[in-house]
Amino acid sequence: MPTDPHPGGGGRVGDGLRLALTTFTVWPVRAGRVDRATAGVAMASAPAVGALLGAALAGVLLLVGAVAAPLVAAAVTLGAGALLTRGLHLDGLADTVDALGSYRRGAAALEIMKKPDVGPFGVAALVVVLLTQAAALAELAARSWPAALAGVVAATAAGRLGVTLACRRGVPAARPDGLGALVAGTVGPVAAGVGTAAVALVAVAAVPGRPWQGPVAVLAALAVAVLLLRHLVRRLGGITGDVLGATVEVVTTLVYLGLAATR
């Protein structure tokens, strides 16, 4: 049976961070031990991984924005984001919305989510989310580089913070196997609270002259995510990997909307 090489839990933390990187990005790191303890570390670390990913995407937005129109820069940034995450979150969004649109519950809804094709509800959700994100990113690209950087980092980290909240204690898994079963109920309240405070703090600099707007956007998006998760748990019986992906995209989109609002 594997043992932790670090008495203080350093091995578990390292394995959890590697699991977070391989779950939320395409970063090629060697997999460590995978169990519910390391899954808890990974899900608690999700906002930090999101911040790193957001910094990379902000770099793409600013570099392309220096030589092309803001909307072009936004589109390229979204493409880079899909590549760096294997498009898994977008796939999860489409599958989850297809299940909700079927008006089925429990096993019947989960069966729809397992199908490889994308239905009309899923396609519509992808179009709306990507168009909204592109428009918001174009608005951020037109701002000063510190504000654009803070905005993209905050929105990307907030999307992964939604996963942290979805994996908090008391939230069940919809299936006995899969990613949802591994991570459901593994995150305690302290990690969720610290992550929320950190992401809200980053968002302060995203809207010049309105330091309150960024944190409000983050908190409002997370509140919507909690309500959505409650509905999904009632409909599906718990969370799945697709639900986590959908949460990432919904929270990210709502934060972008809140940051881009100028009136």
Rank of each mutant, 00 (worst) to 15 (best):
G237A: 11
T253F: 06
T96D: 01
A198W: 04
R86Y: 12
A246E: 00
V226A: 15
V250Y: 00
G170N: 08
G159H: 01
A58Y: 07
Y256K: 02
L131R: 09
L110R: 08
G92Q: 03
V26I: 15
H6Q: 06
V72G: 05
G10W: 08
V199Q: 02
G119I: 00
L232H: 02
V153D: 01
L63V: 14
L227Q: 12
P211E: 13
A184V: 06
V127W: 13
A203E: 07
R33D: 04
A99P: 03
A134E: 00
T186N: 03
A48T: 13
V248H: 09
A205W: 14
A166V: 02
A150L: 06
L130N: 12
V72C: 08
A68C: 14
A181S: 14
T25G: 02
L62S: 07
L222K: 04
V202Y: 04
L236S: 05
L182F: 04
P28I: 03
G238Y: 01
L83P: 05
T132V: 10
G122Q: 02
V49N: 03
A197N: 05
A107T: 12
A192N: 06
T3I: 13
L257M: 14
E249S: 07
K115F: 04
L244W: 03
V26G: 10
A80K: 06
L78G: 01
V202F: 08
R30V: 14
G151I: 10
G188S: 07
G193M: 06
D177W: 11
L228S: 13
R230W: 14
A181E: 12
L62G: 05
L63S: 14
T240D: 03
P7V: 11
T253C: 14
V251T: 13
G65S: 05
P28L: 06
A141Q: 08
V202A: 04
A198V: 15
A44K: 01
R263H: 15
A68M: 10
V171N: 06
A203F: 05
L236M: 09
P172C: 07
L62E: 08
R86N: 12
A157V: 04
L53S: 09
A150I: 06
A181P: 08
F24L: 15
G81C: 08
A37V: 02
A108R: 13
A109P: 08
R234W: 14
A124K: 03
V224K: 10
P189A: 15
V34L: 05
V194C: 06
L83I: 12
R175S: 10
G193L: 12
V250N: 00
R160E: 10
V248P: 05
A134L: 02
G54M: 03
A108L: 13
G79C: 12
L63R: 13
R169Q: 15
V128H: 12
P215I: 07
R36H: 06
E111R: 14
